[in-house]
C-alpha cells in the first residue's frame, strides 16, 4: 500500500511538473520567434524597439489591450472583479525606429493581434478614481449581471514600444530623396515618399506583437520561474520520499515524511495552477482585483 501511495504521489508530481513544462515550451518557442534585430530585414521575423508616431485608432491610439470584467458585491463596500474576456486591438499607424526609419502598420485582425500592456499601468487604470465611483457601481454589482466594465490600456503617440512581426520594405516613391537623406530628416522633408520605410505584418506564429514592456526579458523571467518550480517540486517530492522511506519504516521520521508528502501533494496542485496563471502572456494575464470604498 505504501508503494502504491508513493507511486501515485510521484505520477502526479511529475504530471504537474510536465504541465509546467508545457508552459515553459510555449514561452521558449515564443521567445525564439522574437529574435532581436538591430535593423529590419526584408522577409525576416523579429523584434525591434520603436516610438509610436501616429495612431489611426480613436484618440490617436496605435493599439490597445482590453480586459472585460464583471464586478460583483453584496453591498458591504467591496466589489470583486472577474475577467470575462481579454482582447488585443491593433488599429494601425506608424512608428519610428532608433535609426529614424519609419514603420507603417495597418490595422490587424483581432485574432492576429497581440498587445502586451505594462501590467503595473493596467493595474493603475483598473483602480477606482474615487470612493464615490465604488459607491455608484455597487447597485449594479449586486444585480445578477453584475457591474460590467472594460479596462483599456492604450499604446499612443510618443510611447516607446517593442514590435515584432514580419518585416518588409516599402517601395521608395522618390529615390532621390532616399539617396540624399535618411531617417527623420528624410521623413520630415518628404513626408509622402516612404524613404527608408518599412511595413510590418503578422509573422510571430501568425501574429503581430506590440508590447509596452521588453517581451524577451518578461519571457526570460517567466521561463526561469517555471524552471525553478519544476526543480523545486521534484526536489521537495524527493525529500518527502526519502523521509517517508527512512528506516525503520513506519516509525516517526517515516510518518513525518508521509505526512509531508500528503501535504505537498495537496499543496503543489494549487501552486501549479497559480504558476500557470502567472505565466499567461500579458495580453491575456488575469487582472481580477477588488474595489473598496
Amino acid at each position: 500500500m505504501a508503494a502504491l501511495a508513493l507511486a501515485v504521489f510521484w505520477i502526479h508530481v511529475l504530471l504537474i511538473a510536465a504541465a509546467a513544462g508545457q508552459d515553459l515550451r510555449d514561452l521558449v518557442r515564443l521567445r525564439r520567434l522574437l529574435r532581436p534585430l538591430t535593423s529590419p530585414r526584408e522577409g525576416v521575423v523579429g523584434l525591434m524597439r520603436a516610438t509610436v508616431v501616429r495612431g489611426d485608432g480613436p484618440a490617436n491610439t496605435l493599439a490597445r489591450n482590453v480586459v472585460e470584467q464583471v464586478g460583483r458585491g453584496k453591498g458591504d463596500g467591496t466589489l470583486y472583479f472577474s475577467d470575462a474576456a481579454h482582447r488585443s486591438e491593433i488599429h494601425g499607424g506608424a512608428l519610428e525606429l532608433g535609426d529614424g526609419a519609419r514603420v507603417e502598420l495597418g490595422a490587424v485582425a483581432s485574432d492576429a493581434a497581440l498587445v502586451w500592456p505594462d501590467l503595473a499601468t493596467r493595474a493603475k487604470v483598473a483602480a477606482p478614481s474615487s470612493s464615490e465611483q465604488v459607491t455608484r457601481a455597487e447597485p449594479e454589482a449586486r444585480r445578477a449581471k453584475g457591474f460590467q466594465r472594460a479596462v483599456q490600456v492604450e499604446l499612443t503617440t510618443g510611447q516607446q514600444v517593442w514590435i515584432a512581426g514580419s518585416w518588409s520594405s516599402l517601395p521608395a516613391v522618390n529615390q532621390s530623396t532616399k539617396a540624399s537623406a535618411s531617417g527623420r530628416e528624410a521623413l520630415a522633408r518628404a513626408e509622402n515618399t516612404h524613404a527608408g520605410s518599412w511595413r510590418i505584418e503578422p509573422g510571430v506564429a501568425g501574429q503581430l506583437l506590440l508590447s509596452a514592456i521588453d517581451p524577451r526579458r518578461w519571457l526570460a523571467r517567466k521561463c526561469w520561474l517555471i524552471v525553478a518550480f519544476i526543480l523545486g517540486a521534484i526536489a521537495v517530492a524527493a525529500a518527502c520520499t526519502v523521509a517517508a522511506l527512512w528506516p525503520p519504516l513506519f516509525d516517526w521520521v517515516s510518518m513525518l515524511g508521509a505526512g509531508a508528502a500528503l501535504g505537498f501533494f495537496l499543496g503543489v496542485q494549487p501552486v501549479g495552477v497559480s504558476l500557470n496563471e502567472r505565466v499567461r502572456t500579458p495580453d491575456r494575464a488575469y487582472l481580477r482585483g477588488t474595489w473598496s470604498t
Binding site: P270, G272, V273
Partner: peptide, 29 residues
Amino acid sequence: FRWNLLNLLHFPNVAGPRTFAGVQRWAAS
C-alpha cells in the same frame, strides 16, 4: 497533453485548485 491518458490522470490536479479558488472568489461576493 497529446497522450490522452495523461489528461485523464492530470485533470483533477488542475480542475480541483481552479474550483476551490473559484469558490473562494464567488463566496466573497
